[in-house]
Amino acid sequence: MNKLIRKAPLFLAVYVSLAVMFLVSQYENPLKHYFPGFAEIVQQLAEDTIYVANLIDVNLIDPRREQNTVHVAGVNIDIENLEDINIDDDHGDILAVTEEPEPETDPVFVPIPSDGSYTPRDSFGTLTEGPVDESYFDDAVFIGDSRTVGLSMYSNFENADYLCDVGMNIYDCMDRDISFRGNEHTSVREMLSVRSYRKVYMMLGINEIGTGTADSFCEAYSNVISEIQSYQPNAIIVIQSIMCVGKSKSDSHRTINNPRIYERNEKLSTLANNTNIYYLNINEAIADENGDMPANYSFDQVHLYAQYYYLWRDYLLQHGLR
């Protein structure tokens, strides 16, 4: 107890500083210039608390009550179809519910551009490539590895969704534990089955470049595309070519080299059917005349510096599909 009392000033200091930080985050001040996300963190903390409180509240409700739906964290669950939900009989908890992600928007809501340029997906016609503006990515999702993680941070496509993770590859991309919009443990499969998109942009292939052959890789890719289509029947799939690497990396690495990358890209391009699967050769925007990523674009000769993500971004904007 004495120890605790002696430590009291320390706790006090921590609480005071937390309070000051909170106040600082609430008012307009020069610190905001340096810590622009701080207010959002506080906001997020509050929201999380409410979310958790809601969950606890819901768990107290007996799911077998005479009520047709339970409103859990923004998702309406039909009690008549409860067979699908794992119920722990001892406690009466809805276990599956806690794993259900909270969609930010209504799952079926898809914004449609107002300029009339949009092709309805009931019948896929051949789309043509052309320049688009950023709103084109409102209903797009990017699936990919660390390079797409970079895109999510430095493309400034604020409205697109990014289902990506460092180390993601074609073999584990559907099941891999990823975090998405505050949901720490979800997967691409889970998200694709809840949310709805019109465009699915994929770039995978650098992590598994040492595994299998170009054919086995493309077969796996094709399987993933089929699965994505089963969740997103209205979406077009855009296969982005595997981005090339720098010359020094390419020359020194047994598997991560440009000949291998281009071999696989060649095969990937054959997956496109130009009705609902398209292929975009991103390397047109990145590679130099020898097909290598220029050395000054990257620290590790694999990932673009943040300042060069505009090349990729502009390419996507120039090659929208409609």
């Binding site: 340096y34 430095y154 620290f299 590790d300 990932h303 510096y305 943040a306 300042q307």
Partner: peptide
């Protein structure tokens, strides 16, 4: 380093 120092936020 991969991001590049020129694109780091000060914090």
């Amino acid at each position: 380093q991969t991001v590049g120092f020129q694109s780091l936020s000060t914090p």
